[in-house]
Design a protein around this nucleic acid. Sequence first.
DNA 1: TATTGTTATACTCTATAACTATA
DNA 2: TATAGTTATAGAGTATAACAATA
Lengths: 160, 160
Amino acid sequence: MGKKQEPHRLPSGVGFLLAQLGTHAAATFASSIEDLELTPPQAGLLWMLARKPGRSQRELADDLGMPPSRFVPFADKLEERGLIERRRNPDDRRLHALHLTEQGSEVLGKLGAAARRSEDVLCRALADDEREQLAALLGRIASDQGLSPGVHPGYKSVRT
Amino acid sequence: MGKKQEPHRLPSGVGFLLAQLGTHAAATFASSIEDLELTPPQAGLLWMLARKPGRSQRELADDLGMPPSRFVPFADKLEERGLIERRRNPDDRRLHALHLTEQGSEVLGKLGAAARRSEDVLCRALADDEREQLAALLGRIASDQGLSPGVHPGYKSVRT
DNA sequence: TATTGTTATACTCTATAACTATA
DNA sequence: TATAGTTATAGAGTATAACAATA
């Protein structure tokens, strides 16, 4: 990049910027849905159920990167609030198919609006066409790296 | 963006991609420095000390987004391994100025190499000029959002 | 016997707050 | 009195593994 080789260049590159901005984006989004009393993983589950209803808890837990034992109380809270419901699968009574309730759909709508607002703030330094460019570049990296669209596996594997 | 308004669009945008890719970039980097037996926050501290030696523990802890009580054992480990050293400030003997040792500098070199390798993998889907475009766009967002270059405050404020 | 969902438990991680030494 | 660094401790969060129901 530069003319001379610096002795120690490190966080000047794309990798560091992505990690830094990713954290910032997550924090911004989290605070934008605080009013709805939802956390990002909860928002993620609602979103996943809207895209594909009726999946088993195990599948969903895997996608969210959490063990089943943690998923149970996690889903409990949303069920108590009436945003999702468990339905026994008659064909295989071991499975609990998860569905969005009507109230859950309403909340999802507000969630989307909050996400768009928070994204607009995040990207306010860019013109519309630059924002599209950015989305395209990021999308290509995500696809190349094998990341599933709409699935955020969380910070499970990042050591501290 | 699209012609019709979808009923629920959410993680199609830049915000979600940034969060998703940021996590992925952090995980990739973390695994690339596993051989050096370093975690990302440890790498961050070494990097910060190279950029500006002799800062107090409190300052550094603030930049890393951790309370002083957690910083102490965190720095202890690196000191035991001979990568950093504490030096009493003679003017104000309360302060412990942190410095990189010679061995710490060597490790930092390997660290930089690992970071570059991991970044090359991350960006392999992009041509060189696209990669520069991306860095420029991300850099502008980071600067607009008030993020300090080279400082990664961690995931402290992200609720789960 | 294998799998889903659940519960129990032991362990790790963390922040809060006391404590010391210096100022 | 106030601040840097340190230590102690209590609480939250987590994974592991046992368990019950169903296949």
